[in-house]
Amino acid sequence: MPSDMKFDEIKTHLSRFSIGIAGAGGLGSNCAVALARSGIGRLVIADNDIVEVGNLNRQFFFTAQTGMKKTEALKDNLHKVNPFTRVEAHYITLDKYNIPVIFRNCDIIIEAFDHSAMKVMLAESVISEWPGRPLIMGSGLAGYGDSNSLHEKKLSETLIICGDEKTEVSDDLPPMAPRVGIVANMQANAAIEILMKMKKA
């Protein structure tokens, strides 16, 4: 997208905003790294999981971090990438009661869960609590190949979905780094596009 801002101005603009990320797995960890590299001011990340060896095929963690809380491991990694992005990490199971509290000061919310039931719960919570707040969902990223099936769809100005909207993770359709990474970066890209049009008081 063309912009009348220079790179430094873009980073300064992005540094004024906060993004909430629900989940720190394949989507959340990679999306957070892309946003930190882009100079987002603050990331609020919530997850209830521990880094396991099986996560390393797609998630932004390292072998030495197995056993750590994903929120803490990701916070360390993001600090190494860009120490100027403030990271608020919540080791918690998100539900409809704590979502409005944890993400209250976020300009955009990114859904980065694994399970579809959690995705529905987050969407319902965010849309009911803040009807006009941009929400960027991930749906459909299993397997490998078929890059052109991955897309960004704007259901409205504030509800965006990234993925192929059809593949579901299973034994023969595992989540793998390339497609998970593409969708995570699509979500980050969509967030930046929205923020570039947003004014901060």
Partner: peptide
Amino acid sequence: VKMLYLMSGG
């Protein structure tokens, strides 16, 4: 009417 399917995986 807008409808969105949410597939597992992330």
